[in-house]
Amino acid sequence: MGPKRRRAARVLLLDPQDRILLLHGFDPQERGRQWWFTPGGGVEDGEELADAAHREIAEETGIRDARLGALLATRATEFEFDGRMYAQDEWYYLARTDTVETDASGQTELELRSTDELRWWTLDELNATRETIYPNALAKLLGQVLRKGPPARPVRLTGPRL
């Protein structure tokens, strides 16, 4: 059996100080394999990408006032997670919020089993960390957005698998 194909809407969610919210996750079957990642997830059948982005922000972070902006980037990736291979097409949106308090109580059972922290990061912290962050080009993309604004057309992100 091949990898499960999946579409995902992901979000660079920024607070009023231009910090980005990331979730800390791990593979439930390999707890030592850990990383930080943007809010977002699978697009349900018949759901628009922007609607999925809003839904995922609310479920994963409890933030309901996010204002979705430009589509910044796309990425195709393959990864193994919880004993299954995935082939995922991702769309990354910019979003802004005035809310900095988070609430993970709306997360799915799998999300609760595979995430343990939500944290606001500055661009300097992203650039300085040695921790694994997905997508790998996140700091570069965020830096460009903060300096120049969203790209005229979505950029294509590449890099190693999750």
Rank of each mutant, 00 (worst) to 15 (best):
G2C: 01
G2K: 06
P3T: 05
K4Q: 13
R5Q: 14
A9Q: 13
V11S: 06
V11L: 05
L14I: 10
L14T: 10
D15T: 03
P16K: 11
P16E: 06
P16A: 10
Q17N: 09
F26A: 07
P28H: 10
P28W: 07
Q29E: 14
Q29M: 14
G32W: 09
Q34Y: 04
Q34N: 08
W35T: 02
W35E: 05
W35S: 07
W36F: 11
F37A: 09
T38H: 04
T38F: 05
P39H: 02
G40L: 11
G41C: 03
G42M: 01
V43I: 12
V43G: 02
E44A: 15
E44V: 08
D45E: 15
D45R: 15
E47Y: 11
A50I: 07
A50P: 09
D51V: 12
D51F: 09
A52N: 06
A52R: 04
H54L: 13
H54D: 05
E56L: 09
I57R: 08
E60V: 05
T61S: 11
G62F: 03
G62Q: 02
I63T: 05
I63F: 09
A66N: 01
R67P: 00
L68V: 07
L68T: 07
G69M: 08
G69L: 05
G69K: 02
A70N: 12
A70M: 07
A70E: 15
A73G: 09
R75F: 11
A76H: 13
T77V: 11
E78P: 01
D82H: 14
D82S: 13
G83R: 09
R84Q: 14
M85T: 03
M85E: 13
M85V: 03
Y86P: 03
D89R: 14
W91F: 08
Y92S: 02
A95K: 07
T97M: 08
D98I: 04
V100S: 12
D103I: 00
D103T: 02
A104E: 10
A104K: 03
A104T: 07
S105D: 08
S105L: 05
G106H: 01
G106P: 02
G106N: 00
Q107R: 15
T108V: 03
T108R: 12
T108Y: 09
E109D: 15
L110E: 14
L110S: 09
D116N: 10
D116P: 00
D116C: 01
E117C: 11
L118T: 03
R119L: 06
R119V: 03
W121L: 06
T122C: 13
T122Q: 14
L123M: 15
D124M: 08
T129P: 13
R130F: 05
E131S: 12
E131D: 13
P135K: 05
N136V: 09
N136R: 11
A137P: 14
A137L: 12
L138S: 12
L138C: 10
A139C: 04
A139K: 01
A139M: 02
K140M: 00
K140A: 01
L141K: 04
L142V: 10
L142A: 08
L142Y: 09
L142W: 09
Q144T: 11
L146E: 11
R147S: 13
P150T: 01
P150I: 00
P150H: 00
P151S: 05
P151I: 03
P154H: 06
R156N: 11
R156F: 11
R156T: 15
L157I: 14
R161E: 14
L162W: 12
